[in-house]
Design a protein around this nucleic acid. Structure first.
Lengths: 234, 234
DNA sequence: TAGTGGTCTAGACCACGAA
DNA sequence: TCGTGGTCTAGACCACTAA
């Protein structure tokens, strides 16, 4: 489809307009379609193809009879992020202490969640996660070793999600479950809280495309953590 | 734009194709563009406009050189639903007992959340919500009286979200916060649980377009409720 | 080779908004 | 009245896929 040497005209126009309006205030006018026809010496349908893409993206908004304008940014559902980015968003410095990082054979539950067969090799990574120096969460992550070759052999990353990103495996879909519970004795020790104190249990199954990249169980100190979720759009 | 008497051609083609493929299995071929050009005696660009819309909607998928096919349904983020639909989804019968339903003056927090001024009239509706006969949740909802005229004067609905729907105020955006905690004595009595038992606190601010339609605080028995959330798409 | 979608042209008329 | 976006035409050539 895309000729090798040259850039498609509608892409040229699209990216020109995108750069023009990037940074413009919502409501600012974009060039009119006929104006762009003259500037680029292209047909109007070509310009419309370019603008259509930006409208679908939510960058532009058309008002018949008036013109095309910079759209106000859409509200979008929560992005899928890991602990590190979540804490950064709250202005907290995150640190982690690896309690366990090894190759294991998948049990029935983990195998099913990772779309693997029982006994397949998985990476089990257990960390105590702190924010601004205070124990916040105990996290057990299970990863598909096939998708992360050499993961345990090289230095463990600070952010698992950065490691996904670097491998083109940024999660695009997540199924989370959230429940309240009381801390087990072992959890209480790690989280430096009293036994039987309240905790928030957060489980996640994250996919990149069709690949299950992460299955995890986290337990948060209830007194230090509130989960925020945005749903819907527009 | 839209002439009164007749239907736009690209809309005709679009709806024809939509009805053709509705119910078809993912991967089934849709008519080719040139085929539709002949059937409808329209230009190819008109057919493409129709098909483009269906592709953006996620109904169709184009494969260059091969044809256009029915797309597999997209995974989408959690819909914004209320208690009634949430329980129905779990196969549970929900019932509610109204503990309080009255007009109040908005306090500072509720006023800010509802985009109102302190002292404005709001509806405060407190319900004990049960699933399959068992106490599940204690919910305090605050509503903008202006958006729900006559709400308290007529029979209270079973489902608040049905009432929104009937008024064209179905929430399209929600900001939720979720935390673990221990039940207060009062909550424990209503929820028929021991004092200091674990609960899940779920707060919501729901918008329909730009209008804040609901601000609520719910407290769930931790032993009976786990929250499920899906994020992302594709 | 025949068919498909992707790109592109050079026009046209319409309804609507602002001046 | 003029400019805007919305619709529509009747073609064209391209790259790709499958037979």
């Amino acid at each position: 489809m895309a000729p090798d040497g040259r850039t498609l005209k509608h892409v040229q126009v699209r990216e020109y307009v995108r750069s023009l309006v990037s940074g413009s205030a919502p409501g600012s006018p974009a060039p009119s379609e006929r104006e762009l026809v003259h500037q680029f010496s292209v047909a109007r349908m070509t310009v419309r193809q370019a603008m259509d893409a930006l409208v679908v993206e939510g960058v532009l908004e058309r008002i018949p009879g008036r013109g095309t304008f910079v759209a106000r940014p859409r509200r979008t559902a929560s992005r899928i992020v890991g602990f590190t980015e979540e804490m950064a968003r709250r202005g907290l410095l995150s640190e982690s202490q690896t309690l366990l990082a090894r190759r294991e054979q998948a049990g029935p539950g983990v195998a099913r969640a990772l779309n693997l067969t029982e006994g397949d090799a998985v990476i089990h990574w257990r960390r105590l996660r702190c924010a601004d120096g205070a124990a916040m969460c105990l996290e057990d992550a299970y990863l598909n070793e096939v998708l992360l070759p050499g993961f345990l052999q090289s230095a463990l990353p600070t952010s698992l999600y950065d490691a996904f990103e670097a491998r083109g495996l940024r999660p695009t879909w997540a199924e989370d479950s959230i429940a309240a519970d009381l801390a087990s004795p072992d959890e209480a020790v790690h989280l430096e809280m009293e036994r039987g104190g309240p905790v928030l249990r957060h489980s996640r199954r994250a996919l990149a495309g069709e690949k299950v990249v992460e299955v995890s169980r986290s337990v948060y100190r209830a007194d230090r953590y509130t989960l925020w979720v945005q749903l819907g759009h527009a």
